[in-house]
Design a protein around this nucleic acid. Structure first.
Lengths: 229, 229
DNA sequence: CGTAGCCTTGAAGGTGATCAATGTTTGTGG
DNA sequence: CCACAAACATTGATCACCTTCAAGGCTACG
């Protein structure tokens, strides 16, 4: 399974159509790492010595407010680069803490390889840029909803996550996500998220099993997302 | 003034220390454009044929919610690249509408030059990445404040803008900004922003003259920003 | 001198935060 | 495999902060 990380990355347009020698240059010193649930990959503020490509599973990128509560900046899903932007910065530190949600697999690539191979490789940089572009757009979409009611924000987050992790048309979110995490990702209080999800459960819209959310009525979720409730 | 855009860009670390031939390659087909107040540079959804570097003034990057109201994703300030991320994407369209705030100057660079020169130039890409990194961090900071009271969000936005546009220690924001724009950028209603700013005016914290905001008591603004009110 | 764009103020009402208490599930060490 | 701790979920009551709606004023500019 681990051995096949290359195929997985190619699915997401990374390393696709590259020669064997190009690939080995881009992966010089790379290390496949399996992370356990809640295991930390990077700690925010630590010196950035490598970046990672998500191969399987999902990771949360977390920041902390001065007042101590946590908020989730982004969920990194397969194909996502993590910590790549800071590589260009000598002595840069990771801007976020990165923690695995459920078991996941990442490919850790040393900063030196980034500088020697990635940054000089147009195709590679383009795939990194494409992912950053997507991430930016995702953040913009989220910002666009600041004034929308909480249910709408949660619906968006949920369907966006399912689509990105499971693919178009899926209904089960295979990574474990707590109400707290959902709250931290939409900028709300846990209790408020719980009230929304409980309501949805009652209405038969979703089902939760052991921190795994299944959407039973995607059509209704989409309606809520659009504010048609 | 226009002729000196290179010096201005170098101040922000772009094109710095490059040879004459490198610079002319990076600026092949580039065009200096002066924008009037409220003039549009890019319309969201249009095919992206070039990107721009902000030389002087400021631009707002705007999106529209389905319900029609506007929200401001980012204020682009001198040194900022605009539309650069979408260059890697063939047939990509601008994800945001870009409008000048007050008169401003940008350097428009064709997509072909991005593909031929920028994307192959490690140093150039690094400076673009550095700016994107900053923009991301700015958005993260903003996200971190979703639960903070409105006054805090406005204080942050204001001081961040002043620092980025005018430099450390400045107190006057030289670009015209309306209450509506401030509201759209922090995700609030105009009236709410007005109430906060009026209160600040009464307390002698700020002064507004013809859409230009001056901070009279930066110390107090910082206190508010930190939630110490 | 009238329109357009922006600013202001007040009143009413709602959404979600906070606090507090309790139940439930999961994980771990003996 | 049990017992206890830790993490997570739930529910209710209260209340602050903003939004919304409505109405009116100011200033610039063609």
């Amino acid at each position: 399974m681990v051995s096949n990380y290359r195929a997985e990355l190619k699915k997401h347009g990374i390393l696709e159509g590259r020669s064997e020698s190009e690939i080995s240059a881009l992966l010089a010193g790379a290390e496949v790492k399996e992370l356990r649930h809640r295991e930390m990959l990077y700690r925010g503020g630590d010196k950035a010595s490598n970046f990672a490509l998500v191969v399987a599973g999902a990771l949360k990128l977390v920041k902390y407010t001065p007042s101590g509560d946590e908020f989730i900046v982004h969920f990194a899903t397969p194909g996502d680069p993590v910590g790549a932007l800071v590589m260009s910065n000598p002595n840069g530190t990771y801007p976020v803490t990165v923690v695995s949600m459920g078991p996941s697999i990442v490919l850790k690539i040393p900063k030196s390889t980034f500088m020697n191979a990635w940054s000089k490789d147009t195709q590679a940089m383009q795939s990194v840029n494409r992912m950053l572009f997507n991430r930016m757009n995702d953040m913009h979409e989220q910002r666009a909803m600041t004034k929308a009611p909480l249910a709408q924000k949660i619906a968006r987050q949920l369907s966006s996550l399912i689509e990105r992790i499971e693919g178009e048309g899926a209904t089960v979110l295979s990574i474990p996500i707590t109400r707290q995490e959902l709250a931290d990702s939409v900028g709300a209080a846990v209790e408020s998220v719980i009230r929304v999800l409980s309501e949805w459960s009652r209405r038969g819209l979703i089902m939760t099993m052991d921190h795994h959310i299944e959407v039973l009525r995607m059509d209704l979720l989409i309606k809520i997302l659009k504010g048609e409730d």
